Every structure is written in C-alpha cells, then in structure tokens.
Amino acid sequence: MYADVMAEEFPVVRLDSLALQAARLLAENRLPGLVITTADGRPYTVLPASDVVKLLVPSYVQEAPTLAAVLPESMADRAADKLGGKTVRDVLSARPPELAVVDHDDNIVEVAAMMARLRCPLAAVPRDGAMIGVITASRLLELVLAPT
C-alpha cells in the first residue's frame, strides 16, 4: 500500500495562523499534533499537542513538578491568555521538530521507518508540492494490524 492511499484528510495550519485557534483545533479533534505549513501550503514542521500543553505550564513548574500541587486550578483557566495574540510561528520552539514527509509512492514500511526515525506521530504526504493528506501513527498501525 502506498502513502497516497494511506493518507487521510487532516487539519493543517499555517505558520501565521493564530496559536489559540491551533490549540482549539487540537483539543476539539483530539489530535496528536498538527502539520504546520508555509504560506504557500508546503509542509514545514509538526506542532505536537504535548508542546502546546507545555506552553501552558510555567517553566518553574516544569522544572519542579511538585509545585503543581500547590498552584490553584484557576491558573489553568488563564491558559488561553498565554496563547492569545500569538501566531503558531511565535509558539514554535527555536528548533521545531522535524516533520516526517514521505513521497506519495512510499510503501507502508518506508512510511513507518520515517515516522519511527523522527519519532513523529504524523507524516505529511505531498504531491507536486501540495499536501494531499496526512498519515497518523494510529492510521499506520490500523493498516499494519488489520487482519489479512
């Protein structure tokens, strides 16, 4: 099976999209991450949901997780404020994770190898420079584990 057959429609956002909208898209669709594209629609990077969650927790709590127990839950209510007015580009790390990008005619093993090497839950599938879809790790597992 080839990547263009495995690929599914999947929400993507551009670098200049609002970070809060991207976070809502992740939450509402329970996505493992989002493919981030350039203004011309080319795959650029992945924004894992875990990175967005990390933005909501102050760095001092990340360094000393026991502090989380003493912080009021109302702090979580202000989480959206941290993303307000920022673009996806603003919230990406200085060295964003590499997105698995596979050729439309890569087979299932080639796709799995790329995703495993990059430890990326998503693989973008472009053809002629335009995204035709995304393969998620769960979709790949579904196909691999399907009864024959």
Rank of each mutant, 00 (worst) to 15 (best):
L18D: 15
A113F: 00
I135H: 03
M114S: 15
P97M: 01
A100M: 03
A64I: 13
R139H: 03
M6D: 04
R24M: 11
H104C: 06
L145Q: 11
L18G: 15
A49L: 01
R14M: 14
R42E: 12
A69W: 12
D51N: 12
D4W: 11
V12D: 04
L56E: 02
N107A: 03
L26N: 05
A27P: 00
T38R: 15
G84L: 15
R42S: 13
S59E: 14
M6I: 08
E28I: 05
C120Y: 02
I135E: 09
A3G: 11
A23N: 04
E98W: 00
S138H: 05
L25M: 13
P72N: 13
A112C: 06
P65H: 05
I108M: 07
E63V: 08
R42A: 11
P97T: 04
P58Y: 01
E8K: 14
A19Y: 08
P11E: 05
Y60H: 10
Q62F: 00
R24N: 14
A137C: 01
A68G: 04
A94W: 01
E98P: 03
D103H: 10
E73Q: 13
D16E: 15
D128F: 00
L145Y: 09
M131E: 02
A123G: 04
A23I: 04
D51T: 07
D106R: 01
R89E: 15
G85Y: 02
A3H: 04
A3D: 10
L31H: 05
A116H: 10
S93W: 00
V61H: 01
A68W: 00
P43T: 08
L99W: 07
P96E: 06
M115Y: 05
A64Q: 14
R139P: 00
L18S: 15
R30C: 10
R30T: 08
P11F: 03
A64R: 12
A23Y: 02
G133I: 01
R127M: 13
T45E: 06
R95S: 14
P147F: 02
D105C: 01
E142R: 07
A23V: 02
R30W: 00
K86S: 08
S59Q: 11
R14D: 13
D81Q: 13
P43F: 03
L143P: 00
L92V: 12
L67T: 08
S50Y: 09
V125I: 01
Y44S: 04
A80D: 09
V12F: 01
T136H: 05
L18A: 14
V12P: 03
A79P: 09
L92Y: 06
G85C: 07
D106H: 07
A49W: 02
D106W: 08
R127A: 12
E110V: 10
S50P: 02
Y44G: 01
E63R: 14
L99D: 06
R30A: 14
F10K: 12
R127K: 15
